[in-house]
Design a protein around this nucleic acid. Sequence first.
DNA 1: CTCTGCCATCTTGTAGACAGTTTGGTAGCG
DNA 2: CGCTACCAAACTGTCTACAAGATGGCAGAG
Lengths: 250, 250
Amino acid sequence: MTVNVDNSSDATEKGALLADRAHAHLREQIISGRLAPGARLSEVEIARQVGVSRGPVREAIRRLVASGLATQAPNQSARVIELDEQRILSVYDVREAIESMAAACAAERMTEAERTALDDLLTAHSSALGDVPDSYPSGPGDWDFHHLVLTGSRNSLAYRICVGDLRDLLALLRAGHRNIRGRGERALLEHRWIANAIIAGQADLARTLMATHIRASRDGFLRQWRERNTAAASGRQAAASDKNRNRKEK
Amino acid sequence: MTVNVDNSSDATEKGALLADRAHAHLREQIISGRLAPGARLSEVEIARQVGVSRGPVREAIRRLVASGLATQAPNQSARVIELDEQRILSVYDVREAIESMAAACAAERMTEAERTALDDLLTAHSSALGDVPDSYPSGPGDWDFHHLVLTGSRNSLAYRICVGDLRDLLALLRAGHRNIRGRGERALLEHRWIANAIIAGQADLARTLMATHIRASRDGFLRQWRERNTAAASGRQAAASDKNRNRKEK
DNA sequence: CTCTGCCATCTTGTAGACAGTTTGGTAGCG
DNA sequence: CGCTACCAAACTGTCTACAAGATGGCAGAG
């Protein structure tokens, strides 16, 4: 009765509401990279693609803007958000702040059944890790763990922010980046530490461990992103007379 | 160039877009209490009141739902959110988590000009406090301070969450509650401590002080809210004798 | 050749109408 | 008297049409 947020934004393809279908379509296109950062989101164009009218598409776009996946100025087309290092840091910093708090709250508020479920989840992950070693972080397994912690925190607002908005932003910036070798085992180990602290009711320890875990995830991703970014920048710079991209508005 | 979030949701009465006008109208009605918690938000009714079509009103309502001021089930009217203690705790906990992080970031990233502005703001508040002693917390002055810190954190996402959503939620739950006697001086003092830590670049100290500050604000509000809530409950429960004004706490 | 002003075109913002669903009450039955 | 089935009213979801504003190119002056 408490964490019954019941986010209705995961209508993969069969949403009763057309706006959900359009939203899922756009989110998938953006996260998968088929809609490049900076791309314009024309309402009529998308409406034609999805096969619905402009109304639901308009609502889907406004939802993307609210989530942070797109930006929009009045009387102008919405555009897919453009990532820079500062924006990436923003996402990880907010996530660290909220999820650390959630871990501490979960340690104090989780029921015994939830603690058992958390323990079982990690046991299952541990035994399944051998199959696909490096696909654990940023995959569904990682998400299951954080989902359980957020639910256990009894904080519906934190749940909504992390599941509704931050999840999409993380999916976008992680898209196209390979999983780091060895990060899987390390992440699972950190998950186990956090879970132990939560199950034992050690709130401050859980908070610290969760903060460290997310910071490690951030640092690992940032290193990879900087490599790719500098490589892309030099490659872009090498093409001397490439057509200059449209200047970004101030 | 960084924190240029430019939230376009403060169209008090003269928004170029009708959706902004409808949104401002509804937000004012909800925060002021003229729209009671649980009240139904009929699109056609509101459209008639504001004098616009259903389209902008629909968009405004969806924005309220995204902010957390209202909830909506499919094919049903949106309703003004109903406050309970757990929801209030959620708001304050998330605010504490994000703004503490923002204070630490501000201590590391603020420019000298921003630090000076922060110092000047508190000096001005300090000299203006004598006029209206108890109106400082939860007023515009308090908000100016937190706004400056959030801007200085260079975290556009934290700024958007706190200014865009949490501000409205706080305004809603604070509505109708008087300012606590003596809280003004205390809050200003805590602001001064936080500002000193930020100006000196002491990130961890700023983080701790901001967390303590927000927790104090939460506790003060919660005490008042519980009084009112138990009073209303007992008054509702025992209509005959309203003499038993026992202030019981958990 | 470069800059300025204008115009065709596209895009968003808004209004109104229609269809499907939920709601609340009412009549009828047990 | 309580319960069920049904029906009308209201509401949201959606579509189409129209109006206002922005974009980008083109012609003409300097």
